[in-house]
Nucleic acid binder design. Structure first.
Lengths: 271, 271
DNA sequence: CTCTGTTAGTTGCATTACACTACTAACTAT
DNA sequence: ATAGTTAGTAGTGTAATGCAACTAACAGAG
């Protein structure tokens, strides 16, 4: 193949081309009512005024230190909240995406939020906020722009993480029971999981540690609370030789000696 | 919920903010010499003139229909080739990334290329092209900008795909033998794979189909040629939320686990 | 108090997926 | 014919998982 001679290009000064209208869009997910839901805002201004859309805002190169900081700023401006679990989803761009500009580029970020510790309040340019079941939003033809596509990608990504046992800490409080964790994963995946397998896999991978003494006491039998375990450094990969096959912690946390929680057998000795 | 009155915002005219200097970077991978390699170009101009870097170019909103088209245009301009297997990797942005602009944004795309059917030729602004082993490039502190990071992400993504048995069709010709496929996967993963397991997994997932009658006859026993099988429609078996409403987390007496929908008959080897 | 319903947590077993080894088949070169 | 190399298949032991049954702990109804 013949290379196009770059002769003329060399003479061109560092010309400035017009740059795209660049925005951040937020796909904020939560688990509520046993289902995965996405936060939508009703647009208070044109274009697409009145339609439901993802919260988003323009990238401000005078304010934003990087893309993630931009997403945080947008979250504060539009939702009056900060998002601890942000991850970049993808970028979408083209000339037809937004009538405000000749060429619009959006970087979509995904956030996971536990709904109970989150009070969204509509901010600039939004009339109202609404949690919408994720599957419903993906199929909604009335969402503004290409936002249904972005939501679909966010949902697929999140579900794939669950299959990989990347736990959705973003949906959970600091401490949680295994039942709550499983229910959360089931809500995301959209199907029931097996309790035994689920716990065995968690145990083998040593992702969690019990919070000593802490139990969640509800209507029924109290449950041990767990929290995320610090990823141990693995400076010596593969040298974890342990022919016994015993993993770190084994057995029942509730049986974990007297230190863990109160043991108050019922009428066995008192009667 | 209480809507904050957008009083002041309404008075602001649709002010135009400065937009980031937006570029496309290409992480072009291939398999050569039994290893994963990445294509680097030596920069012919400032900044970082003379350093090895990913091929890339400025997004042209007057030319590019969307981001992928922009990546294709850049590939033609810089490498004189078109890239059939493109996928978006991620976006990176910040004020310190490129001295040419106050705020630089790069969208990185990954491409897979079979090296034999590809003749790269240095195009505009590149003095030379070079295939560099991927692991070496990731560890190279002399690469321009943050390109080593982008390469690392591309390599990790590609390796994860192999583990998932997402086959690297981009590295292969239309028809290939199972031995070639396995060698390719081994080069990407950087370790040997077991022939028996590899073929059994391929067979179970029904990813390939034999090209009838076609054999690759080389120095030794001829091998059957295979090609990618059209993805059969798999409308994700109805495991979406079951409408019984028993998902309320608390109060689900149902013992029924929604077990795997369709079961695949085993041993469907068709030889 | 007992009984019942519900969640927490464990155990055992069957099935499956996989790694490892070994084997047969087909071809070329000598 | 023999050696050498790749193609392709089969068996076997082990680990991962799916499934179900079991015990434990608690609240509330009666």
């Amino acid at each position: 193949m013949t290379a196009t001679p770059p002769a003329l290009a060399a003479t061109t000064p560092p010309k400035r081309h017009a740059m795209p209208f660049t925005r951040i869009e937020l796909v904020v997910l939560t688990v509520t009512d046993g289902r995965l839901a996405v936060l939508l805002g009703r647009r208070a201004e044109a274009p697409q005024k009145g339609l439901w859309a993802l919260p988003g805002g323009v990238l401000r190169i005078d304010l934003d230190r990087d893309l993630e900081a931009a997403a945080q700023r947008v979250a504060v401006e539009r939702l009056n909240v900060s998002l601890p679990f942000l991850s970049q989803l993808r970028a979408a761009g083209g000339p037809q995406r937004d009538p405000r500009a000749a060429w619009a580029l959006s970087i979509a970020y995904r956030a996971l939020l536990p709904i109970e510790s989150f009070a969204p309040a509509p901010g600039k340019r939004l009339e109202a906020l609404q949690w919408r079941p994720a599957d419903e939003a993906v199929a909604d033809p009335d969402l503004a722009f290409d936002h249904a596509d972005l939501i679909r990608i966010a949902v697929e990504t999140t579900r794939a993480e669950i299959d990989h046992l990347d736990l959705p800490y973003g949906f959970l409080p600091d401490c949680f029971t295994l039942g709550e964790l499983q229910a959360c994963c089931e809500a995301i995946r959209g199907r029931r999981l097996d309790k035994s397998s689920f716990r065995r896999r968690l145990d083998e991978r040593e992702l969690l540690e019990p919070v000593p003494g802490e139990m969640r006491t509800g209507a029924f039998r109290p449950a041990q609370l767990y929290r995320k375990r610090q990823r141990r450094e693995s400076p010596h990969p593969g040298t974890e030789l342990d022919p016994t096959g015993r993993r770190g912690r084994r057995g029942a946390p509730s049986r974990d000696h007297e230190s863990a929680g109160r043991r108050r057998p019922r009428g066995t000795s008192s009667s």
